Computed example of a mutant assay.
Amino acid sequence: MRQPSILTATLSPLLLLASCGNAADGDNPPADVAFTVTEHGRFDRPWAAAFLPGTPLLFITEKAGTMKFVDTASGKQGNVAGTPSVDFGGQGGFGDVAFLPGEAAASVGTRTIYLSWVEAGGNDTRGAVVGKGMLSCPRADACTIEDLDVIWRQHKVTGRGHYSHRLAFSPDGQYLFVSSGDRQKMEPAQDTSNNLGSVVRLNLDGTPAADNAFTGEAGKAQDIWSYGHRNLLGLAFDLEGRLWEVEHGPAGGDELNRVEKGANYGWPRVSDGDHYDGTKIPDNATSTAYHQSAITWTPVIAPGSLIFYRGDLFPGFQGHALIAGLLSNAIVRVAIDGDTAREVARYGMDSRIRGAIEGPDGALWVIEDGQNGRLLELRPR
């Protein structure tokens, strides 16, 4: 039996009903799904969260450089030592956390952990990095990351925006995919000599995987899988094993894309949004040279994360994309049909939503954005 959390402050069961408006394609039928929402503590600028496979332990990164975990079965909270030094500022700091799915049956004390964060460079430059280490949890309230080594680096430039640095393992557990934002520099997303504005594909040790988009081509970044992206804050495989990403557009034009090898997604040459100063950008559909988005949003949803729901706790959700919405203060549910997609529901929350994670039993766990962001458990009402 699932025990109530001793840490939990239960909200007076809050009922969240799906909105019947704001669909990107104008077809967003009313939904009768409702949630009860339970709070499980507050965190300082939480950015990402992941369950340790095969356990009820949910690990949460905090943007300034700390990491905590919550035992969702007992409600106890613990700290993680051995986290890296991060370059905190603007959109940068501690990023994603991911665990090898193939180690689900291994001892908790011997798990491999992957992290992303921002690293400072010379001449006021910085860039995202990915590190690989070992997670040890000798006590119920304390874990330690050991032997953490940087295995991949984003091209370093000035500024503090659009790092992206989301992590996703291929379904066979053989490859690590990383989203690498354009760092608000735009043009490098079309320059394949660097890995900005790209999705990269790596071996588990961080080396470029064989048979990437430009493998063996002189002057090309060997880790690129796809390019022409802006700021990719969601990266996930669907139930059929296909990779998708969701990214911020400029003023309008947030995108959900199926990620394919060697595909160019057009940024900054095309977009369904415009520049912030009002300068027009040709729409995606005006050119056949670039891969077309499955769906775009104007007004924007400002995506924070992306998952594909696999459980059965929420009937009708299976196989659907669930996108955490920052500016939209919502969880956006999207149905996938081949290479096309449509928004089918939007669940309004009362704050910016940084991430949504599926728990071991199919419950949804949500982290809010900001300095006092709550961890919320969503279950069917």
Rank of each mutant, 00 (worst) to 15 (best):
P171Q: 05
G262K: 09
D350L: 10
D283K: 15
L322V: 14
F35N: 05
S74L: 11
L148F: 11
T38Q: 11
E146G: 06
G78M: 05
N195K: 09
D141W: 01
T10A: 12
E103T: 10
D182H: 10
I6A: 14
G133R: 08
D149K: 13
V246M: 06
V108L: 15
H162I: 04
K220V: 10
A24G: 07
K132H: 08
D182I: 03
H320M: 14
A120G: 13
A48L: 07
N79Y: 00
V97P: 01
D172M: 11
A106P: 01
L52T: 08
W365L: 07
P208E: 09
D32N: 14
L15Y: 01
G21C: 10
P208C: 09
L322A: 08
A31V: 06
G338C: 14
F317K: 01
H291K: 13
E103W: 07
E146V: 09
L15T: 12
S293P: 15
W365I: 07
N231W: 00
T215Q: 11
Y276P: 04
Y175S: 11
P315V: 08
N212F: 02
L376M: 13
E358Q: 15
F94C: 00
I281K: 01
N195S: 13
T340A: 15
A81Y: 05
E119F: 02
L232K: 11
L100C: 08
L322N: 10
L115S: 06
A356L: 13
D27L: 13
K132A: 03
V366A: 03
D27R: 15
T10V: 07
A209N: 09
H320L: 01
N194V: 14
Y227R: 01
Y114W: 07
W47G: 03
T110A: 15
G228I: 00
N231H: 05
L52N: 02
I336D: 05
Q318M: 09
L11R: 04
K261F: 06
A236P: 03
A23P: 08
P250C: 05
P46E: 00
I151G: 06
T288E: 09
W47T: 08
R310L: 00
L176C: 12
T10I: 05
N123A: 15
A363H: 02
R139P: 00
H275Y: 02
N28R: 08
L364G: 04
S5Y: 02
S136D: 11
A210F: 00
E368K: 02
V344T: 15
E343W: 00
F314D: 03
E62A: 04
C143S: 10
R42H: 06
Y290T: 03
D191A: 13
A321N: 12
R374I: 04
P29L: 07
T192A: 07
D32I: 09
I323R: 03
H248Q: 12
P30K: 04
L52W: 04
Y290V: 04
P29F: 01
S287A: 14
